[in-house]
Design a protein around this nucleic acid. Structure first.
Lengths: 151, 151
DNA sequence: CGAATCTCAGGCGAACTGATATGC
DNA sequence: CGCATATCAGTTGGCCTGAGATTC
């Protein structure tokens, strides 16, 4: 029988291993794995708000802000006032940001290939689907917990 | 087609979601998810060295030491001289440590149940197996990198 | 001697809390 | 008004580097 503890352990070990390899991959560029995740979310499309960024990378507003200030200081992103919502910020990659991200993307191709090399093609989609289930049930827990504060 | 990027994203999202839920679960006890992972490794069996602890939770010696100092300050663990190896420390849970861990374990039963509720029984073992593959290929990368420093 | 284990000082990015300003 | 978005100050735990002591 496989227990919840084993799932948690395996998930932790797999994530930490990947996280460390990613950090090593970008070490000489002064970019962390988490910053790469943020840049990757920005590289997906056009300008998005900090709030949307929070949702995409599963972080919180204060953390995202701190990361953006770091990246802004290096000239990789810009945070402009949102045209139609005065509260929001519109975040985009700069030209330098796109250039750096492309470089990091190429640099990490081998890492992603190694990640995929662990699986048969059909196993990959299974893994992604199962990991998605984890996110879903954990989000349910979040709702329950915040709701329980009212009763 | 499922890309390495999607795997990385899904893995990150799943881990962070679980990590946050775990932290929330133990928040009022002043124990973090990482500390719980360490306590869990200690609860597995008898005394182990800090080095062995590093291997089990996939961290590094300095981090483990800092965490142990914290937990030792709260009376949850003891670090004694290893009987046959003067360099090593022999780490065990105290009576209080075992008591606290049991409490946290019970408290997190619902969380583990929710984690398992996302899957059919056979899917759970598949997930653990696939996550194990990730760890393996990432470890291979670690060897390559350290080896490349010599040539 | 080299290698392994642990200690110590210090720095940094990430995550959080709580209070606050501003615009919807 | 309530609510959402973002800012700011401050704290913490985790992870790392680099240097050193001790023991095998």
């Amino acid at each position: 029988m496989t227990t919840g503890r084993e799932v948690a352990r395996a998930l932790r070990a797999a994530y930490l291993a990947l996280h460390r390899q990613t950090n090593d991959c970008f070490a000489e560029d002064g970019v962390t794995a988490d910053q790469f995740a943020l840049l990757s979310a920005l590289a997906d499309g056009d300008a998005i708000t900090q709030q949307e960024l929070v949702r995409r990378i599963g972080s919180d507003p204060n953390t995202v802000r701190a990361m953006l200030l770091l990246l802004e200081g290096r000239g990789l992103v810009v945070r402009e006032r949102h045209p139609s919502d005065g509260r929001a910020r519109s975040v985009t990659l700069t030209a330098k940001g796109r250039r750096v991200f492309k470089k990091l993307w190429r640099k990490s191709e081998q890492l992603r290939a190694r990640l995929l090399s662990a699986f048969h093609p059909d196993e990959v989609s299974v893994l992604v689907r199962l990991l998605g289930h984890v996110v879903e049930v954990m989000r349910e827990g979040h709702r329950r917990q915040t709701a329980s504060q009212n009763g």
